[in-house]
Structures are given as C-alpha cells and as structure tokens.
Design a protein around this nucleic acid. Sequence first.
DNA 1: CTGTTAGCGCTTTCAG
DNA 2: CTGAAAGCGCTAACAG
Lengths: 330, 330
Amino acid sequence: MATRADVAKLAGVSESTVSYVLSGKRPIGEETRKRVLKAIDKLGYKANYAASALAGGSPRMVTMMTENMFLTPPSQIDGALVDGIVSGVAQSGFHSVIWPISSGDDSDIQALVESNFSGGVILMRVTENDRRAHYLHDRGVHFLIIGRTNVGFDCNYVDRDFETVYRNALQILTDAGHTNIGLLSGNSEINPYMKKASSPFKVTLELINSKNNVESGSEVARSIKQNHPKVTAILSLLDLATLGFVETCAEVGISIPADLSIIGVNMLEDQAENSKVRISTIAFHAYEIAQSCGKMMVEIIKAGKIETTKRSELWVGEYMDRGSISKPPS
Amino acid sequence: MATRADVAKLAGVSESTVSYVLSGKRPIGEETRKRVLKAIDKLGYKANYAASALAGGSPRMVTMMTENMFLTPPSQIDGALVDGIVSGVAQSGFHSVIWPISSGDDSDIQALVESNFSGGVILMRVTENDRRAHYLHDRGVHFLIIGRTNVGFDCNYVDRDFETVYRNALQILTDAGHTNIGLLSGNSEINPYMKKASSPFKVTLELINSKNNVESGSEVARSIKQNHPKVTAILSLLDLATLGFVETCAEVGISIPADLSIIGVNMLEDQAENSKVRISTIAFHAYEIAQSCGKMMVEIIKAGKIETTKRSELWVGEYMDRGSISKPPS
DNA sequence: CTGTTAGCGCTTTCAG
DNA sequence: CTGAAAGCGCTAACAG
C-alpha cells in the first residue's frame, strides 16, 4: 500500500506538499500540483483513514443510529434521510456509517462511545427522553437529533418547522374559501403545532383518524361523507401517495377537487411528483433536510469542544400546486 | 481525554504494561493489573480507535454492506444476521458498522475502499455476479459473502448446507412413509440442491408455488387438495410462521399432521418456537451462522495478506420435532 | 513479569 | 509557494 512518503518521493516534493495538495489548505503551484496528482494516480495512493484521524485530532466519521431498523419497516423517508446525511457529510469531507443496535440496553451505544471511533452521532427515530441522547450527552459526545422530540434537555437538532408548514397549508385552504377542514392524521389528537398554527384562522378542524396504509385510508374515504358532512377540504399529515384515500374517493364518486380539496404536508417531493395521484403538497424535503443535518454535524465536530450554544435548523418546504385545491362546493 | 500515558503515570507503570493489561497479550502480575485497571477506571480512559488501528497495522473494523436496505422490507432474518455478525465480530475484539449504499453505481463502495477505513467487508444480499464483490476482489480488499451466490470467482463464504438440510428433511418425511411430497417454494423451479438431495430417495416432488405472504399462503392452502391430491406431506422452503398456510389448512378442514405432514426448513429457530403454529423444522440458525461469519471475517483480517486458500463454512441446523409429522393417511 | 523505544501515516506548525 | 520536523496515541519488538 502506497503511503504519502512514496507519493512525495515520486513527485520529488515533500510529504507536506502532498498533504496540502490533497487538502487544499494552502496554495500550491500548478506545476507541483500536477506532478503530485500524477504520482498519486500512478501509485494508486489512498489516504490512510486511521492515520489522518489520529493526526487530525478527531475521527472524520459520522455515525448514524436508528432504533429498530429491522423491526419496524423502514420507510422511503428513512431511506431519504440516510442518503441525505451521507451526502451532506461526504460534501464536508467526512464519512458516515450506520451503527447497528439490537439490544434494548446501552451496550451498543456504549461500545460506540468507548471505541472512540466516531467523531459525532446523528440520532434518528428518537423517542421521548431517549436514553441514547442522555448517554451521549453525559459523555460529552457530539450529537445531533433529527426531529425535536423532547429528550429532557436542550440539544442540537434539525427538523421541519411544522407550525409554519401547517400555517401555510391552512392559508392556502382558507384563501380558497374553505372553513371546515378535515385533518387526516394518525394521531388521536390535534398536535400542538397545528393548534398554534390554526389559532389565527377562522376555521373548524375535524380530526379524521387513519392508519398510514391503503386499507385504512380507503375505509376512511368510504365513510367520510357520512362522518364529516361539513368538511370541504382535507389537510393530510399522512402520505397520500400510499394511503389509498384519494383512489377510493374516486371510486365512491367523490371528485377531487370539485367535492373535496386536498393538500398533503408530509410527502416527499418525489412521491408527490411521481404518484399517479395528483395532490398538491407542501413538500417534505427529507433528503435536503438530512443533508443539511449532515453538514451541521461535521461543523459541530470540527468546532471541537462541546458547545454551550446549541445549533438548530428548521425547514418548511415550498408549495407544489398540483391542482387538487379549488373553492368549496357551494 | 485521558491517554495511555496518563493511565501509566497514575498507575506507576509503563505504557506498554497498560497496553498488555488491556490486550492480555502477555502475563501481568495480579498487583500491577489491579492498579492499572483502577487507574483506567478513575480516569475514564477509553482507547483511541484511530491510534490502535494505525499502530496495529489494520483497522479493527468490519463493514457490512447490504443492498436496498430501505427499499425491500428487511426481514427478521436480516436482523438476525446483522446481530449475529456484530456479536461474532465483537467477540473477536473488533467492531462492526453498516456502510450505507444508495446509488446504483460504485461510488459508495469506492468511498469505502478509498477511505481505507475498513479492515474487511461482509456482503449480504449478494446477487449473481455482484459488482461489489468484483470491486472488492479487484482491489484486494478482504471480504466475505453470506450465501453462495455465484459471483464469477471463488471467494470466502458462509452459508447453509442446503443439500444436507434438504436431505435430512426428506429423510424424516420418507422415514414416516411419505412418497408424494409437496415442495412449498417461492421459485418456479426446483433448485439444484434439492434435486441432488432428493435423487437417492424414491419420492415424487410436486412444486407448489407461493409468494412469501399470508394471502398467497392462504390461497395455496385452499386449493391444495384439488391441485395436489396425491401429496401427503409438505416440505416448506418458505417461512411457515408468517405464511398463513397452516392456519388456512385448519380453517378448510385439513388437519396437520393427520391429513398432511409438514416440515419447514427456512425458519429461524425462535420463529418456529414462538409461532402459534406448531411446525417441525430443521432450524435455520441465522444468528449463529452470522456470528461465525463475523469471527471468520476477523480471522481473515488478522491473517493479513489476501490468501489464495479460500475459507468457507456450511451450516445445517438440527431437527426440531414439534409434532407436525406423522404417517401418511392410508 | 516489566520497561524502553521505534515506528504506524498523517496533519500542522514553524521556517524558509 | 515549499520543506523540515514534531507529534497524534498506540502496538510490538527488543531488552532486561
């Protein structure tokens, strides 16, 4: 395996010059640069990860941790998040891996921390008071959460700005004249962000509960006219591209947007685009969100010491008009 | 962050003694040992991964790669495999991570190889002539395959010994007197191992095709008496714990084992044990298989240079009699 | 049984 | 714009 010294010798320069050619951290003459690159190419030189981690002060590695990867079916969103993180981290010159966790205890995360192998950790699918977050926090490990689950203390996070997303969605629907809006959701309560977002509007929100699958979405569509006769518009927190709701509406003779206007707020932009079902959405840019998350993680690692000023970032996503919204039927 | 030098000073020994206490690679006096461990504990010392990787010659890290992790739903088997690898690798003093792959091209695996970060790679869900296998092979990276997919050249692998598994299963059924055996399978052909395994027996195999899901399994059960009237026993390559086949047999009045004897060969042992459906199986010890795979990977890494003698290991799994097999109805 | 020491391959100051 | 050299923290040979 060729080392930096080999490259230096072949190119007739010093080792440090090779380093700087690679890192770009100081100006290099065009001639020298070319010679070095040629030598690297010729020798098939690859940097030694361990050596640079050691010399550089911290491992250039971001670790992703997600609970239950093999139990709950991973969604397209999980995939987009991982891809986004990988991309963001790579753009900053770091690498990323997924740390496998199986046991319910701390042993996995303990192994990660004790190995001193990771520069920072990104937690996904975080639960309230997540023990992993506490563990990392207590040991002074850099970490970042995707989402804003309450873990019991302040920490770095990246998330969607749900309040704004909901407000924008409601604005669009009320602008069109809707006042009775159905809220398609998997939860049995209206979440706090929605409550805040809706307070300035003169609207009635009716919670319409559905599981996030075709059967349930379809069932809801069949009974919506009976159960929610006043509702003229739907704001969906569920993924309409895979819900079966819209399709069933068509089947049972509810036409969108003539009878029912509809907007989705938790759909990946390409799901919305590629779905056969044309639904207007406020796009959920999971990939971009995760990408910025990856970049932020690297910045935090590079900054070094554990900071007291926490970092955070909130994403909204733009409105994609796909023609599923019109005035309420008179 | 405390280093080995700090520990040495506090314990009043040399650095190397600390190292050897940790690695156990040479005898240490009981007294010294205790002092060192106490110092480690007091300082909260954690070994620096990068430093030992650098000094030790190769990274103590195994990387798992699996295609499409977020596209095809991961199974319990995938989970068991990952857990097993992690455990086997950990027992050998190494760590393991999952390397995220998303793009169809070589960029992910290229990043892995070029970072020089991994000591060895375990490939899962390998396809015929898998490009990842070729890439790793060409670059002289240590790797191991779970399964025996034909990748176009010899390589290290761990797998089940299907021929023996099938032979054992057929032995059990023929011993009970069955001669017409239905082969419940997701493939539309009888696989070569089965062909070999069955050749010594005087049996007629009838392929019964089903997808690996409740609906399909249930449908097959409903029509089995019409479509396969002669069959008195089933050898299932699919997972009976989740197939819906046995349950539907009960519904439509086919009693097991009185009307139909049945044996599963691709079920995890705990699936078989915990399933409400009591089915005799030849257990698929995915966890143990993977564990040994992890250990083998570490041995290969430790051995250093790319070997010409390939390693492999084949697993069978023992018979678990759960009372689903009896003589054929006369 | 224990200590000393020479690297592992890279990053980064400090000198030109 | 470039080179020399001092480590980073650990492993493993060598020397007691």
